[in-house]
Amino acid sequence: MSLPVTVLSGYLGAGKTTLVNQMLRMADGLRLAVMVNEFGDLPIDADLIEAEGEDMIALAGGCVCCSYGDDLIAALGQMAAMAPPPDHIILEASGVALPGAIAASLDLMAGIETAGIVVLADLAQIAKQLANDYIGDTIERQLRAADLVLLTKGDLTDAAQVQAARVAVALHAGGAMVIEARHGRVPLDVVLHPVRSGVLETGEPHGNATGLVSEVVIPDSDVLAETFAAELAARKEVIRAKGHVQTALGLKTVQVVGDLWQVTDAPPKAIPGVVVIRLRENVEG
């Protein structure tokens, strides 16, 4: 079984550290391993830390954080060899690294698979950064490689600047899903398994300023699981759904990712309820 790795990219100050801390708080039993380039400014909130070693920090809920310094491959090997191995690795790339190149290299490693590339863009800075002679092309290449772009710090920026930034990002982000997310508040699953929207956009983010909506749906009566799943998958604003529904044939597990869906028998002790993650309608943006 391959260990999934999500590459987290974005220039200095884009909010990677905030997002990582949010993800750790939302882990809810999932054992996340966060890999950072360096511990310089300790990237993890103090209350999440259980024990600190030289290269490894043990975190609440069985999560860990390690620095990979200048040997990413060796550090990944160590992560994969942990017993038990983590459920998911979040690889925080340095501000000038190219996430596409990192992902391509990850694919060379046995037992590792790239779950996707998430690029953070600071709405207050991104337009200026893209126009910078020194780093502009690096930021473009980061955005181009993204499956998901998270627009951050929209609350610190005036509306005109936000709009200009969105256009600038859309120009380079190609088919990536673009979502505005303040303070790293994005459903964990969306970041761990980013899916490209496949739709070329020219300015409007796919999610609005308050990010995504996560809700629990419990149908009033028995449903046909396949129909229920297919309908969710057909709704453009639904990114993910997972949970259990009551059918005439007993409890079934449905999973929806983008426009793909799957129905299986529910495990014992499952309770009805489907978590649906969807984009809020663009009324406020």
């Binding site: 190149a101 391509a104 290299s105 694919d107 490693m109």
Partner: peptide
């Protein structure tokens, strides 16, 4: 199935053994 700029493939689809750049050399 290897798809990396730094790993040229032969006509058989397998790497030719040339590894370009530290990213692909270190593994």
């Amino acid at each position: 199935g290897i798809n990396h700029d730094g790993v040229p493939l032969g006509t058989d689809g397998l790497p030719l053994g040339e590894l370009k750049g530290p990213d692909v050399m270190t593994p």
